[in-house]
Structures are given as structure tokens and as C-alpha cells.
């Protein structure tokens, strides 16, 4: 495969990078057992989606994608605040951060 000599970057590169980052986020979400690391994997997935939004905004010549990714950031901030408060509460009640130990609702 020969890359033609152009100045620009193909749009698909951005999308593939976003796909790789999203997959890494999914992998971290599934494989890690520390509840904080799982939470950070979710942030990684949100970031990957933001990259897609902004790449397509560039492609379509509109800035709607920027606004949506701004909303994603805002929601992520709210989610981080509430989620970390929940983690604090879990740790206060159970003295553990292992996600496998928090299984009261199971069965």
C-alpha cells in the first residue's frame, strides 16, 4: 500500500484511532477489577467518541460536532462527580475497591 504524497491526513485515520481507543476502553472496562480504573476506562471511551465527533465536524464543515463533544464533556464532568461520590460511599461502607466484592444486588 502506497500512501500518496498529500499534505492532509485521511479522515479514516482519525476514525480508526478513535476505534482503537474505544476498544481499549472496553477492554479496560471488562478486564480491570479496580472500580476507579473501570471508571477511567469509561472516560477513555467518551474521549474516543469525542474524537469521532470532531473529525466528522471537520469533514462536514459544520461545528455542530464541536458543540456535541462539549456537551459530552459536561456530562462526563457531572458523571465523574457523582460516580466518585458513589465510590467514596462504597469504600466507606465496605473498605474495598474491588468490583467483584460489590455484588449485593447479584441474585
Amino acid at each position: 500500500m502506497s500512501i500518496p504524497l498529500v499534505i492532509g491526513v485521511p479522515l479514516s485515520w482519525y476514525l480508526i484511532l478513535s476505534a482503537i481507543l474505544f476498544t481499549l476502553g472496553v477492554a479496560g472496562f471488562l478486564f480491570r477489577r479496580n472500580i476507579i480504573t473501570v471508571f477511567m476506562s469509561i472516560e477513555l471511551m467518551l474521549n474516543a467518541v469525542n474524537l469521532t465527533f470532531i473529525a466528522f465536524a471537520n469533514k462536514l464543515g459544520q461545528n455542530d460536532g464541536h458543540i456535541f463533544s462539549f456537551f459530552v464533556m459536561v456530562v462526563a464532568a457531572a458523571e465523574a462527580a457523582v460516580g466518585l461520590a458513589i465510590i467514596l460511599t462504597i469504600f466507606k461502607n465496605r473498605q474495598t475497591l474491588e468490583i467483584d466484592e460489590v455484588s449485593t444486588l447479584k441474585n
Binding site: 498529500v6 499534505i7 492532509g8 491526513v9 485521511p10 479522515l11 479514516s12 482519525y14 476514525l15 473529525a55 465536524a57 471537520n58 469533514k59 464543515g61 459544520q62 461545528n63 464541536h66
Partner: peptide, 15 residues
């Protein structure tokens, strides 16, 4: 994706 989709630095000014 169509193969012509390219991103050039400085081409997008609505950001």
C-alpha cells in the same frame, strides 16, 4: 468512507 476525505490543518475555521 469516500477516499477523498482529507483533513488539512487550517482548513476548518469554525472551531
Amino acid at each position: 468512507l469516500p477516499p477523498s476525505g482529507e483533513v488539512k490543518f487550517g482548513a476548518f475555521t469554525l472551531g
